[in-house]
Nucleic acid binder design. Structure first.
Lengths: 344, 344
DNA sequence: TTGTAAGCGTTATCAA
DNA sequence: TTGATAACGCTTACAA
């Protein structure tokens, strides 16, 4: 760093290295045709000058910025936060950079986020909340922007959908409650009404009914600890108090358990069996020790990025006409046995 | 959206509106000199065509991209996640977009993140973890990039430092322990060794010693729930078991409390008084009900963005020569009285 | 392999 | 207020 130039460009490096500016560009482009000798001279000059490629200019001409948008609502929630954590990590390792867009989960706020992604020529968008409308997603294709949907329980042409198998989880939960000898089952849900949350409820109820068991459903508020408390209050003051409750998420389950113990003096699992969903860190804390289903968030993130890199590689330049296929990944939710169900 | 053009540029809008492409540019630039009539025609054409400014091109010529980098490690941690949540929200409201960079907290990984920010011509970087080396921060200035340090307990010329007053918190904590009649105080810290964490320990010890009280210090691992458990084990098996423990964060305090209760059958606050730091959501959960100090994260985020917008406005174009001043904000950590200290 | 030159989609300067 | 025109820093045919 000998010359203190305000901002150094490829031309400066070229001058110092005694090559053309295209040589500099090639030296910084993996797989470009440069002789080892010139590449080395370029790199040396670049290091001396402190040169780095301007990603804005590169993105402009390549029409892709190596930015990947993460479209999320309620990002401070444990499950979301850990998903974002893994996604950013794997994206970085793949040479991408994450742009985080907070939505209020309404569909038009998701569409606005997607538009933002287009404006920055993002390589891809990963949607963790809400669903964009179709005209905007079509624009994404036109711009060659990938879309990845995580737990959206929907499919978009040309996109990747990652989902969890709610069925097997419901089955396992039901078996656990039965083995524990629970007589009155309940499902504690929020009013968020997202497809994946609704599905957890629906499959559990369907399965229980097929087994000749009825389940009381209560829904309230957002998918939070506080809602779990309210849900506990509502469910536990019922005439026929449930003794086996499947909570839609761990956050709800934690609130439910705390309320059951501290307000209703109920023992878990002796008086009340509880199962959650997500396997957030708190579910493993010894105050809760909650039996739950693990979302393989690290796996989600890993596979999402892997798919992204793969499709980019496949992209031979010309876009295949016609509506594209969509890819889809379905994972099992692995049960994590802990102490909130008898006989677990 | 009548014509289905692959990707529409300002020229297309200009053609349709019957104006020059500079007119289009001006129509999309707040405060530019356009007659209402042409602006309206441009906007109409733009809407019909589905035109949106290409942020890459705009950023290239303006040399600033409206991107703000968030440089964070361990983003899934409750305190960090909520800080990121508020930052992204306020940034978006101010017309910026957040780029999230995960670091491993080592200083050179922070420097790499900052370099990335420069490559994207970010307007600013907000550093929540680690400290970059000086040569890279100097480059940031040259590029007109602002730096905001949150809880770094350090100052960089031309940057904003946001910090919490550890002193007053230590004072309050000490008073609380004294009022509760604690005899043996301890401080449970991690080995992370970040300035703000170290300061919490140092000020507490200094204050206690001035009051003629000695405090046992134990340090272990990362700043996590699990470390809290280990720390509890180490501290509570000591010959002289502490009965008043100040934990460096709530996460540590939760682990500490759980271990104390479930492994040592200690009652909180009867046998053991506990104070945490951060006021994460879990501290308020009824299993913990932890007395702690609130970090005003929403305020941090709000003021950080406000400062950013203000300094951008002040920037009259020419950079003042010489080393710049730095701005600095110091907040009080408001105590949140809950049930983990006797007589709170 | 290398250099020349033509863009990429904007904004900013300067006359008109 | 408007429209040419020249950047911005880079990549990429196309020739050499």
């Amino acid at each position: 760093m000998q010359h203190e130039k305000a901002v150094v460009s490829a031309q400066d490096v070229a001058d110092r290295a005694g090559v053309s500016r295209s040589a500099v560009s090639r030296a910084f482009t993996p797989g470009a045709s440069v002789s080892p000798a010139t590449r080395e001279r370029v790199m040396k000059a670049a290091a001396e000058l402190g040169y780095h490629v301007n990603h804005l200019a590169r993105g402009l001409v390549r029409n892709r910025s190596s930015i990947v948008c993460l479209i999320v609502s309620e990002i401070a929630t444990p499950y979301r936060a850990s998903l974002v954590r893994w996604l950013t990590q794997f994206l970085q390792e793949a040479g991408k950079v994450a742009m985080l867009i907070n939505t209020d989960r309404s569909d038009n706020s998701v569409s606005a986020a997607l538009q933002q992604a287009i404006n920055f020529r993002a390589d891809a968008s990963i949607i963790l909340s809400g669903m964009p409308d179709r005209t905007i997603t079509r624009q994404c294709y036109k711009h060659g922007q990938r879309i990845i949907l995580i737990n959206r329980d929907e499919a978009l042409p040309g996109s990747l959908s990652i989902n969890l198998d709610a069925e097997s989880a419901a089955e396992t939960a039901l078996m656990a409650f039965q083995r524990a000898g629970c007589r009155h089952l309940a499902f504690a849900n929020s009013l968020a009404g997202t497809p994946s949350l609704l599905k957890r409820e629906a499959t559990f109820i369907a399965l229980a009914e097929r087994a000749g068991l009825s389940v009381t459903v209560e829904r309230f508020g957002t998918t939070s600890y506080e809602s779990g408390q309210i849900l506990a209050h509502r469910l536990l003051t019922r005439h026929q108090r449930p003794d086996g409750v499947f909570c839609v998420t761990d956050l709800v389950a934690c609130g439910f358990m705390d309320e059951a113990r501290h307000r209703f003096a109920l023992r878990v699992p002796e008086d009340l069996c509880l199962i959650g969903f997500d396997n957030i860190a708190q579910a493993g804390w010894s105050s809760y020790h909650l039996t739950t289903f693990a979302q393989p968030v690290e796996q989600f993130a890993h596979d999402a990025v892997k798919w992204l890199m793969k499709t980019e590689e496949d992209d031979t330049g010309f876009t295949p006409q016609g509506e594209q296929q969509h890819d889809s990944l379905l994972y099992q939710a692995d049960v994590v046995w802990r102490g909130s169900v008898r006989g677990g």
